[in-house]
């Protein structure tokens, strides 16, 4: 077995990359082949003022592909899945944590993923859980509005969840056209003519809603308010199950978050959804 590389040595350097997954894989490549463990890995746009050396890592798809292929080969499929999910999560210093995990996993093999109580693995698993839970929540909490026959919705998630909810909605609305706009990550899942893609978009302007759309929204709000049993009222329980950060995009409760929003924007309930 010639495989064991020496452990990387902590180095006073910060890697910056373009923010893409391929770019990150090139940072892994750099670390493995220089034998140094950077102090931090950052996206170029939020590259900090620092006393450390900053090295800009250029995205090279050939290098990225080598790293990607090595993960299932030398570690496991599960490790690749975990790495991709955590990369989409909002874990602080996720790049460095994934790198540290990978460096160890190259030595210890696939079983590292199952050391659920390990101090280096547990944060990745909980970041993964956080993302998947948010994706599951959003499968329920997303509210579409019918705008000229197409369905549109907006979300403000903490994680980059679009790739994880895409399949669900494509299958659910396979005969429709729809768009889910992610305000946090400035991207949109667009599905039309049987094709789904995720686009980078800064801003979306939705048209006014029709009368029939407003009617269904009013019916839904009425149902929502009626179905609750007064003598059981329990706002804390509601908040545990449906955290307030989701409310701004849910028409039945958005008024409770920003009471002013509906007054400022004319045109009915839809304004708070979009």
């Amino acid at each position: 077995m010639s495989g064991f590389k020496p452990l990387t040595v902590p180095a006073d350097v910060i890697y910056t990359y373009d923010g893409s997954f391929d770019g990150f894989l090139c940072c892994v490549f750099e670390s493995v082949y220089t034998g140094e463990l950077p102090f931090s890995i950052r996206r170029e746009e939020d590259s900090p003022m620092t006393l450390y050396d900053v090295r800009s890592i250029v995205t090279d798809s050939a290098k990225a592909e080598r790293v990607r292929a090595s993960i299932p080969l030398k570690i496991s499929e599960r490790a690749l899945e975990l790495v991709i999910t955590v990369f989409c999560s909002c874990l602080a210093e996720k790049e460095l944590r994934i790198l540290e995990f990978l460096l160890r996993a190259y030595r210890e093999g696939g079983k590292l993923c199952f050391k659920l109580g390990d101090a280096a693995v547990a944060p990745l698993l909980s970041a993964e859980k956080h993302l998947l839970r948010e994706a599951h929540h959003l499968k329920g909490f997303i509210r579409f509005a019918d705008v000229g026959g197409a369905l549109v919705a907006a979300i403000t998630p903490k994680n980059y969840v679009l790739p994880f909810i895409s399949q669900h909605f494509v299958l659910r609305y396979s005969n429709e056209q729809f768009m889910i706009f992610d305000k946090t990550n400035k991207s949109a899942l667009v599905y039309q003519n049987g094709r789904a893609e995720i686009l980078q978009i800064d801003h979306v302007a939705f048209p006014e809603i029709s009368e029939s759309e407003a009617r269904y929204q009013a019916l839904w709000k009425q149902f929502y308010n009626t179905v609750s049993i007064e003598s059981r009222e329990n706002p804390r329980c509601r908040m545990t199950h449906m955290p307030k950060r989701y409310w701004e995009n849910m028409l039945e409760v958005s008024g409770l978050v920003h009471p002013a929003a509906e007054r400022i924007l004319p045109g009915g309930q839809i304004v708070s959804v979009l």
Partner: peptide, 24 residues
């Protein structure tokens, strides 16, 4: 798949903290 979520799916929670999954 897509049409229903196998483990069930809560779409909202009313003020009494109960899940709203279905039009009841």
């Amino acid at each position: 798949p897509g049409k229903t979520v196998a483990a069930g799916c809560c779409h909202s929670f009313s003020a009494d903290g109960r899940c709203i999954s279905l039009l009841k």
